[in-house]
């Protein structure tokens, strides 16, 4: 089966019923995508499918046939971190870092759609991504700082 991962054509073997998360981490060795719960509660495995944020633990890999998949590895362009990634570092929005890849992708979608989100919109957009370290405060600040 074939799909596009971070702009590159990729393929994998095996049952299409496997979790996209496992195909990404094990077959394609893109380990930026994390598994926190395997039941769609924590959002650590968030990826974008055709620009929409989803939990890759709940997607059958066969379902992305022909789709554009973006993982955290796809956010940095030309080797440079995105403004959002830089804001996370500068403002202390990442502590242990395990939620950060999913958090970045959920925030990325928000910023693509809403140029100047308010704090309430940021909270709603990130509500599917659990963080246990930060209390979300600095994550929300970092996303707001990227409003253009």
């Amino acid at each position: 089966m074939h799909f596009t991962l971070n702009g590159r054509a990729v393929s994998f073997e095996g049952a299409g019923s496997r979790r996209l998360l496992d195909v990404l981490r094990e077959d394609l060795r893109q380990t930026g995508t994390k598994e926190g719960c395997g039941e769609g509660e924590c959002g650590a495995c968030s990826v974008l499918i055709d620009g929409e944020v989803v939990n890759s633990c709940l997607v059958a890999a066969g379902q992305v046939e022909g789709c554009d998949v973006t993982t955290v590895e796809g956010l940095a362009t030309n080797g440079g971190l995105s403004p959002l990634q830089r804001a996370f570092i500068e403002r202390g929005a990442a502590q242990c870092g395990i939620c950060t890849p999913g958090m970045l992708l959920a925030a990325h979608v928000l910023l693509q759609r809403t140029r100047r989100p308010n704090a309430a919109a940021v909270r709603e957009a990130l509500a599917g991504n659990l963080c246990r370290c930060t209390g979300y405060t600095k994550i929300i600040e970092a996303v707001l700082s990227c409003a253009t």
């Binding site: 769609g40 929409e52 989803v54 957009a125």
Partner: peptide, 9 residues
Amino acid sequence: IGAAQIQNR
């Protein structure tokens, strides 16, 4: 329902 990730699916 859920949050963005679940609402998308």
